[in-house]
Amino acid sequence: MTTTLNRVERACADLHRDGQQVTFTAVAARTGLGRTTLYRNPALRSMIEEHRHRAATGGTLTSLTDEIATLRTALDALATRVRRHEEKLRKLQPPKG
């Protein structure tokens, strides 16, 4: 999956660099993946949508503020998941002693 993520990331970056729109169709053509695969895989879809958003906002201060807020929200959600997993692991481990 990491290789696929890298291919999609590279395709998005290349499209942006070449002044072309980042679309699911364009990314599919560059990577050889099907559009359905790009839409159905949450990680790939998120990556493409993020590149589309960046291209549309052009790196303005407002867009950077929005991006920071989005990243904070994602980080909070991830931290919550990590805490939950740590709790589960503690319950699975036998007491020391």
Rank of each mutant, 00 (worst) to 15 (best):
T3L: 11
T4Q: 12
L5M: 11
N6L: 11
N6T: 10
E9C: 03
A11S: 09
C12L: 07
C12W: 09
A13K: 04
A13S: 07
A13L: 04
L15M: 06
R17D: 10
G19A: 14
Q21S: 07
Q21Y: 06
V22L: 06
T23H: 02
F24V: 01
F24G: 01
V27M: 04
A29M: 05
L33V: 04
L33M: 10
G34V: 02
R35H: 00
T36W: 05
L38T: 13
Y39R: 00
Y39Q: 01
R40W: 04
N41D: 13
P42S: 04
R45T: 00
R45K: 06
S46R: 00
S46N: 12
M47E: 15
M47Y: 10
I48N: 02
E49T: 00
H51W: 15
R52G: 01
R52Q: 14
R52P: 00
R54K: 15
A55P: 06
A55I: 07
A55W: 12
A56S: 14
A56W: 10
T57K: 05
G58S: 11
G58K: 08
T60I: 12
T60R: 13
T60H: 15
L61T: 14
T62C: 10
T62I: 10
S63T: 06
D66L: 05
E67T: 00
E67D: 11
I68L: 14
T70A: 08
L71G: 03
L71H: 12
R72M: 00
T73L: 05
T73W: 04
A74H: 05
A74M: 09
L75N: 12
L75F: 08
A77H: 09
A77S: 06
A77V: 01
L78W: 02
T80C: 08
R81K: 08
R81H: 09
V82W: 05
R84S: 11
R84M: 13
R84A: 14
E86G: 04
E86I: 10
L89F: 11
R90W: 13
K91F: 11
L92R: 08
P95S: 09
K96M: 07
